[in-house]
Design a protein around this nucleic acid. Structure first.
Lengths: 206, 206
DNA sequence: TAACATATGTTAGATGCGCTAACTTGCTAA
DNA sequence: TTAGCAAGTTAGCGCATCTAACATATGTTA
């Protein structure tokens, strides 16, 4: 808005690059303690600056968290793409691998995953936060499209992709929130995905 | 209950049932503003007591929130049972109705639903919070068992119930968190459930 | 009925966080 | 060289959670 020049040289003023340092510190703190136990003041202590310093770079706490979330979607996207390319583009194995990558990301980044989805709803309203997310999803549609073409499935790839996403997201959420543990301890989520993905790729009741 | 009726409450120094009043106030505040914008102090003002009063009844803020969550699972359970009994015990329609009740509860109690699942993980560790939840899930298994028997489905009812729960929970989460809105605006979740439930009730072939 | 014990309120205050205002420092460009 | 601005600082406000010490209602018992 009010920033004039497109200058990228932020290095070596007083601190170095405090903006990046703070985002990184917040990312790490959220990963470690969860967003519900996170304080911007802690991040300041990690970065070695006063608690007023962030406000020279960010509007408020939520703006930093939104950047953390954005970074989370970015990484998730990369992992997802890597998985499908390794397992086979447009194949059942590739699509299943994307699902497994989604769940794996959720498990290995539980607290970040919670922040990305639902824990702090206001973050998604911020500019650009969901861009990486939508990019990731369009990759799923793409894969499903290829699969449908190759295997003569006549369903709408978009609808099928939504079903897959829904299932995989539900599995991730229930798994990291320990809800499976209560009613179905020892559930093998990877096996469930392997089993269920083909069911969801079918055309409904034609 | 209106404020300060001297007849009923006698303008007491002792409140009468502050414990229940506070839980109720917290429930309402969470429903209205979300747990991330909730303060116990607000609940105290609603109840007309000092901010130190709750600590005569509860260990800390989290204990009150845990009771709110418990109450949420309780209500969800009731709605779910009512739905299946209305739509038909042990039938596809009944099972689909349970799923729709789950999603409806999530939509109509978005902020409470978030608190129940994942927003504040420590709550689930509290004694008795998940009892209602497990009771609700065992009802799902029961329905699936009857369905499988009647329709000659040879799959494990437990595994099938987990699949159904996973899908329905994913749909609820993505719907209330506005994630569908970004990639699939105007998605008809009820129709998707109707379509997908039969797929998930099938035995994974091959 | 008087007196004590206990449950349940109160006020005061310690500690911590988000955020703002006002001041200071040091880089950079005219 | 120096004016201007970017990016730090300290001080402080308001609000939150929770504790300690004190006050009052309730009900049990002598």
């Amino acid at each position: 808005m009010t920033s004039g020049d497109a200058v990228k040289a932020k290095a070596k003023y007083h601190h170095g690059d405090l903006r990046e340092t703070l985002v990184r510190a917040c990312y790490d703190l959220v990963a470690e303690k969860g967003a519900e136990n996170f304080s911007l003041a802690d991040a300041c202590r990690l970065a070695g600056v006063s608690t007023a310093a962030p406000y020279k770079h960010f509007r408020d706490r939520d703006e930093v968290l939104a950047l953390v979330v954005q970074r989370g979607f970015d990484e998730m996207s990369e992992l997802s793409m890597a998985a499908v390319e390794k397992a086979g583009v447009g194949t059942l194995a590739g699509i299943t691998a994307m699902g497994n990558a989604y769940v794996s990301f959720a498990v290995e980044n539980q607290r970040l995953f919670r922040l990305m989805f639902g824990q702090h709803p206001v973050l998604k309203r911020q500019e650009g936060v969901m861009d990486e997310g939508t990019g990731c999803f369009s990759k799923v549609i793409e894969q499903v499209e290829i699969y449908c073409e190759r295997n003569g499935v006549s369903g709408d790839p978009m609808a099928i992709a939504v079903r897959l996403w829904t299932f995989v997201h539900g599995a991730s959420s229930l798994l990291i929130d320990q809800d499976y543990a209560v009613v179905a301890p020892g559930l093998d989520v990877a096996a469930m995905l392997e089993e269920t993905t083909p069911l969801l790729l079918a055309v409904p009741s034609s």
